[in-house]
């Protein structure tokens, strides 16, 4: 459970840092306010949907951290054999980076109120993301062609499951992104467009990060690191 404990440590540090600024030491029973003065709410200085996305990403992060925890616990068992990464994975990673970059440009464009550029960037993102998904399917094909099956190789099962769950999240994101793109054509309200573009961008960057972690894990580059953690903290 190392991976998820590390993840929780990060989430709890952020939460703790936020809480530490919430005057938890105050004595509310001594602090009645007077009429006529409307105090603030001490809410986070962001719109609700951004906070909401942040919380949601924490949930997604926990999900992947747990899958990865399970992965490392499974690698400990004697029947484990690594499988070679299909080479198309690197191409796919590149595509996802491009998609993220396109959305970054989209945010810049929408902030500068350049509607034409925005439309182009959004379309570019959709295109590269679709290609990414297609490439993931090819990766599955390659491995099956090389004779790996879910029944015979736990490493392949994990490959299938992790890329699959990541893919489902990307597809979910695509639904929202398509809606945003449609709005770029139909809507005139720049503030709403900007908000949804920014949300999509955050989501895509996060899913890119998740993808990188997944690749590092599946390629076995994190094994030594996890071994060290295990020795420090033998918690499964």
């Amino acid at each position: 459970m190392i991976a998820v404990l590390i993840f929780l440590a990060i989430v709890f540090s952020i939460g703790g840092w936020w809480l530490s600024r919430q005057r938890l030491m105050s004595k509310p029973w001594l602090e009645p306010g007077f009429a006529g003065v409307a105090p603030g709410t001490e809410a986070i200085n962001l719109p609700a949907n951004k906070v909401g996305l942040g919380v949601f990403l924490a949930v997604v992060g926990a999900l992947f951290a747990l899958f990865i925890s399970a992965y490392f616990m499974r690698t400990e068992l004697p029947d484990w054999r690594n499988i070679p990464m299909p080479r198309i994975i690197w191409l796919n990673t590149g595509l996802l980076v491009l998609a993220s970059a396109a959305l970054h440009c989209a945010v810049v464009a929408v902030r500068a109120k350049q509607l034409r550029a925005l439309k182009l960037d959004l379309l570019a993102c959709i295109a590269t993301t679709l290609m990414f998904l297609f490439g993931q399917g090819m990766a599955w094909e390659t491995l099956t062609a090389e004779g790996y099956f879910a029944t015979s190789s736990p490493a392949y099962s994990f490959f299938l499951m992790l890329t699959g769950v990541h893919g489902i999240h990307i597809i979910g994101g695509l639904f929202v992104l398509t809606r945003t793109t449609r709005h770029a054509w139909t809507q005139t309200n720049n503030a709403a467009l900007r908000a949804s573009t920014e949300l999509c961008a955050t989501y895509w960057h996060f899913m890119l990060l998740v993808w990188c972690v997944v690749v590092v894990v599946l390629a076995g580059w994190a094994n030594d690191f996890v071994d060290i953690c295990r020795q420090l903290l033998p918690l499964g």
């Binding site: 919430q22 005057r23 105090p39 709410t41 001490e42 809410a43 962001l46 906070v51 949601f56």
Partner: peptide, 22 residues
């Protein structure tokens, strides 16, 4: 999860004026 996001974000961002956490 859909409901939970609501409960959390409403507590974080939806409080009325003067309703500090404490």
């Amino acid at each position: 999860t859909m409901g939970g996001l609501n409960y959390v974000v409403t507590v974080l961002q939806g409080r009325t004026r003067g309703m500090t956490l404490m």
